[in-house]
């Protein structure tokens, strides 16, 4: 089922461009982020776990202000500090996700930098291993990433920088809740250096 959904997703995205007579505009991005995870087991108090994430992805620009992207990455969540005689276990994840981006220009630009703000919404799957063990588990997450993007007014400059504030609601079946918030930096580049099709 997930395989079918992913196939359909890309079929839709890729077929859009020839149908509309537009060129395919693809960008790639690398993101590094730090985050706090707020977690709660039904028996024990809420605690905070810190973590970091690095991901790589590809972005297909669909309309002027919209894009679809896919990414994969590594995510590390550290064990919490002790809380009443327990700690929450740390774990490492391999993460994959599908997202939709929407953005608008923040203000009409006057200099060489154009500022955008927007939001990325998507779903992720995490294949995880608890630290110091060989215990594995899976959980999906809902991703909501508000961002501020900085681009050059010259559309032929193939680089952009995006400041993101990733929010995740993790659907952990062994916890009452697991939520994370953080800050990250993305470097977005157009690998074909043909400028940005839709800006």
């Amino acid at each position: 089922m997930p395989k079918q959904f992913i196939s359909f997703f890309f079929f839709f995205v890729i077929s859009y461009f020839p149908l509309c007579g537009k060129n395919l505009s693809i960008a790639q991005f690398t993101t590094a982020a730090m985050n706090f995870n707020i977690v709660k087991d039904s028996r024990f108090p809420t605690a905070v776990q810190t973590g970091e994430r690095i991901s790589w992805g590809a972005q297909l620009n669909i309309f002027e202000n919209f894009a679809a992207s896919i990414s994969g990455g590594l995510n590390r969540v550290h064990a919490s500090f002790p809380v009443e005689g327990i700690i929450y276990r740390g774990h490492g994840n391999i993460t994959g996700g599908l997202y939709l981006d929407g953005k608008i220009q923040f203000l009409p630009h006057t200099g060489s930098v154009v500022v955008w703000w927007g939001i990325r919404v998507g779903g992720e799957g995490n294949f995880s291993q608890y630290s110091l063990t060989r215990l594995y588990f899976f959980y999906p997450a809902l991703a909501l990433d508000p961002f501020i993007e900085f681009s050059h007014a010259d559309k032929n400059v193939p680089w952009r920088i995006r400041l993101t504030f990733p929010l995740r609601y993790n659907f952990r079946r062994d916890m009452v809740f697991s939520f994370s918030a953080g800050i990250g930096l993305s470097l977005i580049s157009n690998p074909f250096a043909r400028g940005w099709e839709y800006d």
Binding site: V39, D41, R43, F44, A79, P82, G85, I86, I87, Y88, R89, Y130, T133, L135, F137, R172, D174, M175
Partner: peptide, 10 residues
């Protein structure tokens, strides 16, 4: 072997 679950005990 060790039990699973999100919590580790001191």
């Amino acid at each position: 072997h060790v039990s699973g679950g999100p919590v580790d005990f001191i």
